[in-house]
Each structure stands twice: as C-alpha cells, then as structure tokens.
Simulated assay, not measured.
Amino acid sequence: MKALSVIELAQLYGMNRQSIYKRINKGDLSKNSDGKIDLSEAIRVFGEPSQNNKHVTTLQSTSVQKETEVDMLKQQIDILKKQLQLAHEREIFQREQLATKDNQIEAIQRLLEAPKANMTTFTDQESVQPSMTKTDPELDTAEAKHDGLTTPEQTENEHSPVPTHIEPQPKKRGLFGRLAKAVFDN
C-alpha cells in the first residue's frame, strides 16, 4: 500500500501537522520503520479524504508510478549492461581462439613447405648425399653406370653398417610345438 509522510498526510486531509503528531503520540496512528504512514492506516483513523483533496492524491499516485517506472528502467539498463559486457568478453575470447588457430595453421604450413636437406625427389636426381664425394675413382665409375632410377650401391656407409651375412631367425613355436620338438629330438 502507499505510504505518505506527515506533511503529505496533512495536505491530503487538510490538517495541521501538529494534530497528526498528537495522534501518533497517543497511539491512534502508527508509523512504518521508514517514518511514513500507510494510507490505509490514515483512512482507518481519519476516514476517507475529502473530495477537494483528490487532486493531491492523484498527483502523488502519478509520481509514485513514475518512480516505479524509473526504477524498472534502471534495472533493465543494468541487465542490458551486463549482457553487453558478457557479449564483449565472448567476442574477445573468440578472437583469441581464432588467432591461436591461425598461428597453428601458419606453423603447420611452414613445416609442410620447409625443404628437407637430405631428401631427393624424382625431379632432383642431381642431389648428392654428404657422405658421397667424387674424390674416389671407384665412385666415378659407379656414377657413370648409374641409370638414375635406382640408388647406386655405397661401398662405405658411415651411419649404419650392413652385415654381409644375416642368419635367419628360428621359427617361434608355441607350448605344444616346443614339447613336440623336445619329444622328437630325444
């Protein structure tokens, strides 16, 4: 319900403020915790306001409505500000994610485009491995015989020596195979 100050109540009923304070002190009229008096409490004590004071009540009710509307609009503005801030933060986050992905894509493209030093291609048969030099006359004759489709034999490989004879590994047997071999060998 609408609450009125002592001055507003005095104007509404056309009374003196002192008479309203006397009623409050006697206990006939009570105030709220904010120091205002409910209109229903005033109507209980003083009755309905007179017709000539209706204009004051209308003005007060319109001002209360305007204050309520202003409060609602302020709350809506606060909500919209929060939503705008969240949208701005999401946009910044998305931009950072996009920049990170762009950097990753560029790094991968650089890795894909980077030429490998020891790698030969079919179009580049002139590449020579660093371990092969043309100072050895045997290599000169091997290169002359090379047809370009197969790799020439290297007489000396410094990185991984290849054994001349490789023994085949024995066939792996399961439990029953090993038992059968042990029985038949004895």
Rank of each mutant, 00 (worst) to 15 (best):
A87T: 02
K74V: 10
L80N: 04
I92E: 01
V64S: 06
E69L: 14
M72K: 15
H88K: 10
Q97W: 04
R95F: 11
L80H: 04
F93H: 05
L80D: 04
K82M: 02
Q85E: 15
V64T: 06
K74I: 09
Q94A: 07
Q85D: 14
S61I: 06
E67N: 13
L80M: 13
I79H: 10
V64E: 08
K66R: 15
E89G: 01
E96V: 08
I77M: 06
Q75F: 12
L98W: 02
L73E: 03
L86M: 09
R95T: 12
E69M: 12
F93Q: 05
Q75P: 05
E96N: 06
I79R: 13
S61D: 11
L86R: 01
Q97L: 12
E89Q: 14
I77A: 06
K66E: 15
E96H: 08
I92T: 04
K74A: 11
Q83M: 12
F93A: 11
L59I: 11
S63E: 14
R95L: 08
S63N: 11
Q83G: 02
Q65L: 10
A99C: 03
D71T: 07
D78A: 12
S61Q: 08
E69Y: 15
L98A: 03
L80S: 06
L98E: 08
Q76N: 09
R90G: 00
Q97R: 12
Q85V: 06
L84V: 04
L73D: 00
D71R: 10
S61H: 00
Q65S: 12
K66H: 15
L59E: 13
R90N: 11
L98T: 04
Q65M: 15
T100R: 13
T100D: 13
R90I: 00
T100C: 07
E91R: 15
T62N: 14
E91Y: 15
E69I: 12
E91C: 09
L98D: 02
Q85C: 08
T62C: 13
E96Y: 01
M72C: 12
I79P: 00
K81I: 01
V64P: 00
T62S: 15
K74M: 11
S61Y: 04
D78V: 03
K82P: 01
Q60S: 09
I79K: 14
T68F: 06
T62V: 13
M72W: 12
Q60T: 07
K66L: 15
L84N: 08
D78F: 05
Q60G: 06
I79Y: 10
K66Q: 15
R90L: 10
L59F: 13
I77Q: 03
Q75H: 13
T68W: 04
E91F: 13
T68C: 03
T100P: 03
M72F: 14
K82E: 07
I77N: 01
